[in-house]
Design a protein around this nucleic acid. Structure first.
Lengths: 379, 379
DNA sequence: CCTCATTCGTTCAATGCTTGAACTTAGTCT
DNA sequence: AGACTAAGTTCAAGCATTGAACGAATGAGG
């Protein structure tokens, strides 16, 4: 700590609260002062360098009511942006996100990544990112993979075995000359529901089924990753201790009853689209397969809620598409098994974000860090 | 925010880090400066009012080595203390705790609280506290009950039904003219392993079996209580979705297989003491009952670890006493079911704290708050 | 016994951030 | 045109930390 670092910390903290207020919505200096509890004088001070460096713009005066008209500040439309990329078994997706939370570009390309090597994967991702971002100034990139990540290293990816142990973030960073942050797809899908906009409160679980089942847990407005990145492994919650053996070595894991592969097999379908059609046409075998999965998922979620005590579950990914045929069974198991008392309620929502949730969350990782550590904006 | 509140926050934050360093161990101003990263000048400033108000004392100079001898600072032995009380089905316990982490007094009295009313319970607790504390200056009291607490209100206490909805903290506070904080016994037993001394790291779960099974979850050095106080309800984690019905309305809850009442029944014993004797004399029925419970508990804990990703489980209360006959089965289920990868390890420990863990944790609630919000020390 | 080296603790001017009040600017309302 | 209102700026004051200088208290060595 040098002489005046304490003072600098105060300033950075205030800068952060101002930026958070601006993510919420644009506002004049006076408005921001009222919203943050700081004074107009401080707001003038804090925003000056942000305007000078092109992070913010001052809009033309708004003529509304009496008094001197205000000149609202907002994130500069040509300011720096973040990019997020998702590597998955069967596709790649990227999305660019402005500091204001607006999506600028998206791209999703089918691609069989199952046997690919690290450098093949990274080459394709880097190329896709270059196509999408063009010459814009980038704050950084977020990278999502279906697997467990700890300290920037891929620890476990049952479905992309070629990538275990790879320093993916570093590799992509070198290719693009950018800061890259790597995280689990479940965590990032959850983050997309928290940042830049609160879609499900500050405490919730986001559940998806792709090849496995992954849950992203948000506690107190932060994604909870656990000590080693293994938190939220809902797929391996046990619901029948002597049940079906699982590839993980355990028995009776939720994944073996509510995984997408299980649903499709039981329904006698090969694709999610075909399953949806069967459901829409009232096929009883399909309906039963989905309901059975919902029951198993509901038991696992009840256990999760008895441990985490969050009020909200968000069904995302494939589950969101099956929501109308799935949620009754899930809700019923949860109602019967989650401990009740006081004012406690549980909500079950379908994600509104669709297939770009993960890539958007990956980009959100970057914009969020930029806001929370504003010194990065000036670097 | 008034004019210089920001600066005041900086000072209070520094005061907190100094007090934390002192809880760790006493030290001279120069030593504390080195440990906290602050300067000697600041330390002189910060400690001056603490010495003046009798929170700290300056010990006589220590003659060790060259240079001017240092005068170590420590918490004043006659300074203010905290008291913690545990209300349980069959006993009351209290403990007084100094800011330095030393236990001053303890008292445990058998008492059947099952049918007691709020005021009967509080009268007895208040009397016990008065006996134990005498005329010492009290920082406050912590109160533990076997049940779910939210916003200072008892929401659920299956075993002390007379207390649901009672403002216990307020009632005890009035009787003793003190600040009283109410919390769940599982959370407080866990806190006792975190504060004032780290006995199991900063991330762990502490599990006890009394009438039910309760887990106190510590994440990142903080007790995690969840949105409504229901977090860590390990007893109602499902291990067999079509298993034994539970009083909670669900089926196959861990509690129905690993609860103390189940162990005793299966072992054909009436008390924990008698069970211990049977185990010591090699009774196979008792051993099997404990092992079966251990398997069920292990399945539940495996699920918990796949969700929370903490590296350590502490067995406390009755489980600590059964540790040697229980842990092999628990560990074996955990090894087989917790997702592995990277550097991940899991530890299973027996609590060293014994029957005062909960009361000590309740007192710790108060000393911890005093240290983390040092402004309270001067009020 | 006296001097030097060493470490502890205190004193003090400097730093830089927020603040409230006063002030300037730029509109509306009558 | 003059009063009124609200936005934004300027400025002296206040304050916690800091580093450097200083005073204090002891051990080592001659």
């Amino acid at each position: 700590m040098t002489t005046v670092d304490h003072l600098r910390q105060v300033r950075l903290g205030n800068l952060r609260t101002v930026l958070l207020a601006l993510v919420d919505r644009p506002g004049s200096r006076a408005d921001l002062a009222a919203r943050t509890g700081l004074t107009k004088a401080t707001l003038g001070n804090l925003t000056e360098p942000l305007l000078a460096s092109g992070i913010l713009v001052e809009e033309p005066a708004t003529l509304a009511g009496m008094g001197r008209p205000s000149k609202p500040l907002r994130f500069h439309p040509d300011g720096p942006v973040a990019v997020g990329a998702e590597i998955n078994v069967s596709h790649l997706a990227v999305e660019t996100l402005g500091l204001d939370g607006e999506t600028l570009e998206r791209r999703l390309v089918p691609a069989d990544m199952r046997g690919a090597t690290e450098s093949e994967v990274l080459d394709r991702v880097a190329e896709l990112i270059r196509e999408v971002t063009g010459p814009r100034k980038l704050l950084g990139a977020g990278l999502a993979i279906p697997g467990v990540v700890h300290d920037g290293i891929v620890i476990r990816t049952p479905n992309l075995p070629g990538l275990v142990g790879s320093p993916l973030a570093e590799g992509l960073g070198r290719r693009l000359d950018l800061d890259v942050e790597l995280d689990n797809e479940a965590n990032l899908a959850a983050l997309a529901h928290l940042w830049p906009h609160h879609l499900a409160g500050e405490d919730f679980v986001h559940v998806t089924a792709d090849v496995g089942i992954g849950a992203g847990v948000v506690l107190n407005g932060e994604v909870y990753r656990g000590v080693s990145g293994f938190a939220g492994e809902l797929g391996h919650v046990v619901i029948e201790r002597n049940g079906v053996p699982c590839t993980c070595g355990s028995r009776g894991c939720v994944e073996r009853y509510a995984g997408l592969d299980v649903i499709l097999r039981e329904a006698g379908r090969r694709t999610l689209n075909s399953l949806r059609k069967a459901l829409d046409s009232g096929d009883p075998k399909a309906a039963r397969a989905v309901r059975d999965a919902g029951e198993a998922l509901g038991v696992g979620l009840a256990t999760l809620m008895n441990l985490f005590d969050v009020p909200t579950v968000v069904l995302g990914g494939s589950y969101a598409l099956l929501h109308d045929h799935l949620s009754a069974a899930v809700q019923s198991e949860m109602d019967g098994r989650v401990l009740a008392g006081g004012e406690r309620h549980t909500r079950l929502l379908a994600s509104p974000l669709g297939e770009f949730a993960v890539a958007r969350g990956a980009a959100g990782l970057v914009t969020r860090r930029a806001v929370q550590q504003p010194e990065r904006l000036f670097a």
